[in-house]
């Protein structure tokens, strides 16, 4: 009999920011260093170009203020608490919409994946709604729910719910029938079958859907704030643009990029944790 080896360190290398820090893997540290080392020059060149091009008059500094000016605007907005306030509002909207999507999509997906009749009834409706863009529906949300928070939460909900729903259904359908048989032979109740067998089997798929859903929610709330809002990071960017305060606009955009990085890092780490029981070769790519 061969002794089992610990596979947890054999995860294929990924780009440095997508690798969960909790997993100690020397090869990935080396990989991370080389990824930064190789990737940094390109970034620096871009930054330098951004700084110099407006200063040398290659491009209009009104549309493209030098990077240093963008950073000083950024520092100002951080110092005054303005940035934190707008980010807080955007994240809160996205989080509420996404949270509602989780609450709705997972139970619904479990039922649709498990009971064919239920799926047949609802599938056509879901397919129709899924192929309607959340942005196309924004005017409807505003008409029905008003210009306030509700319409923004609705759009983030709508942006996430189908990723979660479809992936939950797929996850449920991929449950190994042998696991169900084994569970039943041990006297598992219907409820426990859902909670202790079907749901855990579907977790990798659900978590993958959640990653897409979180991003989609955040992007949607930004877009919605640009179109119709008095607060939020999307509003901040859009309003700065209208006021020709382009240094603030770029500061807002860079902030979004940074949030995107953090979010992706967090989600990948979460996914790795939620699916750490899987054999490493089954682990999906980023």
């Amino acid at each position: 009999m061969t002794l089992a080896t610990d596979n947890s360190t054999d995860i294929p290398p990924r780009v440095w920011w997508s690798r969960p820090a909790s997993l100690p893997a020397p090869s990935s540290v080396r990989h991370a260093i080389s990824a930064i080392g190789l990737g940094l020059p390109a970034l620096l060149v871009l930054a330098l170009l951004w700084e110099l091009a407006p200063r040398l008059g290659w491009i209009n500094a009104i549309f493209f203020p030098p990077l240093s000016q963008v950073f000083s605007a950024l520092g100002e907005m951080i110092g005054s608490g303005l940035l934190a306030q707008h980010i807080g509002i955007s994240l809160q909207r996205a989080a509420i919409g996404f949270g509602l999507a989780v609450i709705v999509a997972i139970p619904l997906g479990l039922l649709m994946g498990r009971y064919t009749l239920f799926e047949k009834i609802s599938d056509f409706l879901v397919q129709t709604l899924r192929n309607t863009s959340q942005f196309a529906l924004l005017p409807v949300f505003i008409l029905v729910l008003g210009i306030g928070e509700a319409s923004k939460i609705a759009i983030t909900f709508y942006a996430a719910v189908f990723f979660l729903l479809i992936n939950t259904i797929v996850g449920v359908k991929s449950v190994d029938p042998l696991h169900i048989k084994a569970a039943r032979s041990m006297g598992t109740s219907d409820w426990d079958l859902f909670a202790k067998v079907i749901l855990p089997s579907a977790v990798p798929s659900i978590v993958a859907g959640a990653r897409l859903g979180v991003k989609s929610s955040l992007f949607s709330v930004i877009a919605a704030e640009m179109l119709a809002a008095q607060s939020g990071i999307g509003y901040l960017i859009q309003n700065s643009s209208l006021m020709l305060e382009t240094d603030r606009m770029y500061a807002g955009i860079l902030t979004l990029t940074f949030i995107g990085f953090l979010l992706n890092y967090g989600l990948v780490a979460f996914e790795a944790r939620a699916t750490r029981w899987r054999a490493s070769e089954d682990k999906g790519a980023v």
Partner: peptide, 15 residues
């Protein structure tokens, strides 16, 4: 009654 299968049928998400 307890049942043991050829393919083990362990739950992979449980230790």
């Amino acid at each position: 009654t307890a049942y043991v299968f050829q393919q083990y049928a362990l739950f992979p998400w449980r230790t």
